[in-house]
């Protein structure tokens, strides 16, 4: 049997707005993925640790507080340190256009902004997971 795609849905930082994270987690579940949801208030260390422990193929992060540049960069740094840079990383939330090119340059594969259908994110992950 084919292994299900494993995805970690994570909320880095102190932001408590988890409606989007929960909706996307459920959409991935309905699409047949193995979903691990971290809950809110995770440090970058917590997230990378969970990604390693759970042997995931993809990390999907959500932030609405504006702290994305710092927190996402930190996650990418740690992912490199832990040798999991082949894990696909995607993100969503209130992220202004001008930050998107920077976030892509540090290795985040795609940023999904408000109004994106969950099915786009699901298709994107299916097409782009590397392992």
């Amino acid at each position: 049997m084919e292994r299900k795609i494993r995805i970690l849905v994570a909320k880095p930082g102190l932001d408590g707005h988890d409606r989007g994270a929960k909706v996307i987690a459920r959409a991935f579940m309905e699409a047949g993925f193995e979903v691990i949801y971290t809950g809110i208030r995770q440090t970058p260390e917590d997230i990378v640790e969970a990604a390693v422990q759970e042997d995931v193929d993809c990390i999907a992060m959500s932030i609405l507080s504006g702290a994305h540049n710092y927190l996402f960069s930190r996650v990418m740094e740690l992912a490199k340190e832990k040798g999991i840079e082949d894990v696909l990383v995607i993100a969503g939330g209130i992220i202004p256009d001008e930050d998107i090119s920077y976030l892509k340059s540090i290795g985040i594969a795609e940023i999904f902004t408000p109004g994106t259908p969950t099915s786009y994110a699901v298709d994107f992950v299916r097409k782009n997971v590397k392992r």
Partner: peptide, 22 residues
């Protein structure tokens, strides 16, 4: 801001990147 709301000063490790944001 979020650090104030969850009881951390601006120099707390968990406040990094969040100070003055929301």
């Amino acid at each position: 801001d979020l650090p104030t709301q969850v009881g951390y000063d601006s120099d707390h490790l968990l406040a990094l990147g969040e100070v003055g944001k929301v």
